[in-house]
Structure formats: structure tokens, C-alpha cells
Design a protein around this nucleic acid. Structure first.
Length: 106
DNA sequence: CACATGACGCAAC
DNA sequence: GGTTGCGCCATGT
């Protein structure tokens, strides 16, 4: 267990908390901000490790393609898409998020 | 200790 | 412009 990983996850959570409503961030984006240019996969692991009990809007984190995560990680059913839509995130007809508009730009 | 897997990203086809 | 393959880091078997 590298201590660095723990710090990384912590940063990821902080960043996710900073994602404004109606916007979404990509794994690569968060990973880059957290100090891991190529740690996109680590971001995913970090999220998976994050208990939904917290106030972390993990549903605002999507992949670069604007595709939402599988339902099994969200114990709260497949709410991710619904929640995002409720927050104003625009989904394209194919089911992907319109990153052009909804991508978080800090 | 080596191989396989994963809420991924980007380059190439 | 959609699809396929390889690469990235960390963890699990």
C-alpha cells in the first residue's frame, strides 16, 4: 500500500466535491489534477472504493467518451443518468453525455 | 514472483 | 466518424 495512493484518492474526492452541479468531469481530468497524468484507471478504482454514504457526487464522474458507469457500482440503481439529467446535464440520443457542454472546465 | 483485471485514455485503422 | 488495440497505474489471484 503506497501512501501516495491514499493521498491521490483523497484529492480525487475533493475534486469530485468541487464539480459544479450540471457539470461532469472525466477520470483523466481528475487524475491529471490529482497529479497522475495517466492515472485515469486509478480514478476509477478510487471511485469504486468510495462509499456512497458520503456526499461525494460520484455520479458526476464519467469517462472521456461521456458514457456513464455500469449500474452494479451504483447501489442506488442506475440513478447516475437520471441524477445528471436532473442536474441539467444534457444526454445525447445515443445515451452519452454531451461533453461539449457539460464537461467541467475549471 | 508473474499473470490477469479494472467506474479509463488516446492513437491508429 | 465509429470501432479496435495498446498503454497507463494499482490491486488481486
Amino acid at each position: 500500500m503506497s501512501v501516495d495512493t491514499s493521498e491521490f484518492n483523497k484529492r480525487i474526492y475533493e475534486l469530485v466535491l468541487l464539480i459544479p452541479k450540471g457539470k461532469v468531469a472525466t477520470y483523466g481530468q481528475l487524475a491529471l489534477m490529482a497529479g497522475k497524468p495517466n492515472g485515469a484507471r486509478l480514478t476509477g478504482k478510487a471511485m469504486k472504493n468510495t462509499p456512497i454514504d458520503m456526499d461525494i457526487p460520484s455520479h458526476r464522474v464519467v469517462n472521456a467518451a461521456g458514457n456513464t458507469a455500469p449500474d452494479y457500482v451504483f447501489e442506488s440503481k442506475r440513478h447516475q443518468r437520471a441524477m445528471l439529467e436532473a442536474e441539467g446535464v444534457i444526454f445525447k440520443v445515443n445515451g452519452n453525455i454531451n461533453m461539449k457542454i457539460c464537461k467541467w472546465n475549471p
